[in-house]
Amino acid sequence: MTYKLILNGKTLKGETTTEAVDAATAEKVFKQYANDNGSDGEWTYDDATKTFTVTE
């Protein structure tokens, strides 16, 4: 399945997607991506749209 990440950071904004077997796997990928790019904030997940959002 395709999962989407929306970044609403102070310095990093945008979207990216990943293919993953489940939401937990996608979350690990996205959290590593956000960490690698210095983005940290409040995470939410919408199962209906398969979208993670991180807001700083």
Rank of each mutant, 00 (worst) to 15 (best):
A23N: 05
A34P: 02
A23H: 08
I6F: 06
T49M: 05
F52T: 01
K31D: 01
M1Y: 15
T44Y: 09
W43A: 01
L7D: 01
A48H: 09
G9V: 09
E19Q: 14
A23F: 13
E19K: 12
G9W: 07
A23D: 04
T44L: 07
D46P: 00
D36N: 09
Y33Q: 03
G41A: 05
T44I: 08
T49R: 05
M1C: 14
W43N: 00
D40Q: 13
S39T: 14
L12W: 14
D46R: 02
K10V: 13
L12A: 10
E19A: 07
T51P: 00
D22R: 01
K31N: 03
K31W: 07
A34I: 13
K4W: 10
K50M: 08
N8Y: 12
D22F: 02
S39I: 15
Y33I: 07
E15A: 09
N35R: 15
T2Y: 07
G41K: 04
A26I: 02
L12D: 07
T53M: 09
L7H: 03
A20W: 02
A26M: 01
K13D: 05
L7Q: 03
A26H: 00
A48C: 09
G41M: 11
T53G: 02
Y33P: 01
G38M: 12
T44C: 07
D36W: 10
K4E: 04
E56P: 11
D46V: 04
V21K: 11
E19N: 12
N37K: 12
A20N: 02
Y33W: 14
T44N: 08
E27M: 13
E42A: 09
T55C: 08
V29G: 02
N8Q: 12
W43S: 00
K4F: 12
A20T: 04
V21C: 12
Y33E: 02
K28G: 06
K10C: 14
Y33H: 04
E27L: 15
N35M: 15
Y3S: 03
F52C: 00
T11R: 10
S39P: 06
E15K: 06
N37H: 14
D40A: 12
K13S: 09
V54N: 01
A26P: 00
T51K: 02
D47L: 06
F52V: 02
K4V: 09
F52D: 00
F52R: 01
E42M: 11
K31Q: 07
A34H: 03
D40Y: 15
N8A: 09
A26Y: 00
T53I: 08
T18E: 03
T11G: 14
D36A: 12
T2I: 14
T55A: 06
A23G: 04
Y3V: 04
Y3M: 02
T11H: 13
Y3W: 05
M1A: 13
T11L: 12
E15M: 13
L7G: 02
T51W: 01
L12Q: 12
G9Q: 05
A24M: 11
N37E: 07
F30Y: 01
D47A: 14
E15P: 05
E15V: 13
A26G: 00
S39W: 15
V21L: 11
Y45I: 01
V21P: 15
N8P: 04
G14E: 10
G14C: 15
K4P: 04
K4G: 03
T17M: 08
G14F: 15
Q32E: 10
E56L: 11
G41C: 06
T17W: 13
Y33V: 05
L5P: 03
T11N: 12
E19P: 04
K31F: 05
A24N: 07
D22A: 03
D36Q: 12
Y33N: 01
T2D: 06
K13E: 05
K31Y: 05
E27I: 07
E27D: 03
I6A: 03
K28L: 11
K50I: 02
G38R: 06
D46K: 02
S39G: 09
T51Q: 03
K31P: 01
W43E: 00
E15Y: 13
D40M: 13
T16D: 02
D22H: 02
A23M: 12
A20G: 03
K31I: 08
D47I: 07
A24H: 09
G41W: 15
F52E: 00
T16E: 05
W43T: 01
T16K: 10
E42Q: 10
A26N: 00
G38T: 05
G38W: 12
A24C: 14
G9M: 14
D47W: 07
T18R: 04
F52Q: 00
V21H: 11
K4H: 13
Q32N: 06
T51G: 01
D46W: 02
D22S: 06
V54P: 00
M1R: 12
Q32C: 05
M1H: 14
T16W: 15
K50C: 05
K4M: 06
T25R: 05
T53A: 04
Y45V: 00
Y3L: 02
F30H: 01
T51N: 01
V54A: 02
N8S: 08
V21F: 11
D40P: 08
I6G: 01
G14R: 14
T51E: 03
G41P: 02
Y45L: 01
N37Y: 13
L5V: 04
D47C: 06
F30V: 00
G38S: 06
G9P: 03
A34Q: 03
E56H: 08
A34T: 08
A23S: 08
W43P: 00
F52L: 01
D46Y: 03
T51V: 04
E15C: 15
N35L: 15
T55G: 05
D36L: 12
D40I: 14
D40G: 10
V54G: 01
N37L: 15
D47F: 07
E42Y: 12
K28R: 13
T16C: 15
A24V: 09
W43C: 00
T49W: 03
M1G: 10
L5H: 02
G9E: 05
D47H: 10
T25C: 07
A48F: 10
A23E: 06
A34N: 03
T2N: 06
L5M: 04
V54S: 02
M1F: 14
E42K: 09
F52K: 01
V29L: 11
E27V: 05
K13Y: 12
G14K: 14
D36F: 11
Y3A: 03
T49K: 06
T17Y: 13
T53W: 09
N37C: 14
A20K: 01
G38V: 07
T55E: 07
A24D: 08
F30M: 02
S39K: 09
E42S: 09
N8F: 13
Y45Q: 00
Y33G: 01
T18D: 01
T51D: 00
D40F: 15
A20M: 02
D36E: 13
T2A: 05
L12P: 06
A26D: 01
V54D: 01
V21M: 12
F52Y: 05
A23C: 13
A34W: 13
G41N: 06
K13W: 11
K28D: 05
Y33T: 03
W43I: 03
A34L: 14
T11F: 14
N35H: 14
F30N: 00
A34C: 14
A48I: 11
D47E: 13
W43D: 01
A48L: 11
T25V: 07
T11I: 10
G14W: 15
Y45P: 00
V54L: 13
A20Y: 02
A20S: 06
G14I: 15
T16S: 07
G41D: 04
N35A: 15
A34Y: 08
T18H: 06
T17P: 01
L7P: 01
D40S: 13
T55Q: 07
T55F: 08
V29W: 14
Q32Y: 04
T55H: 08
V29F: 15
K31V: 06
L7A: 04
M1N: 14
A23K: 13
D36Y: 09
I6M: 05
N37G: 05
T11V: 11
D36P: 04
N35W: 13
Y3R: 03
T51H: 01
A23W: 13
A20Q: 06
G38I: 13
E27K: 10
D22Y: 02
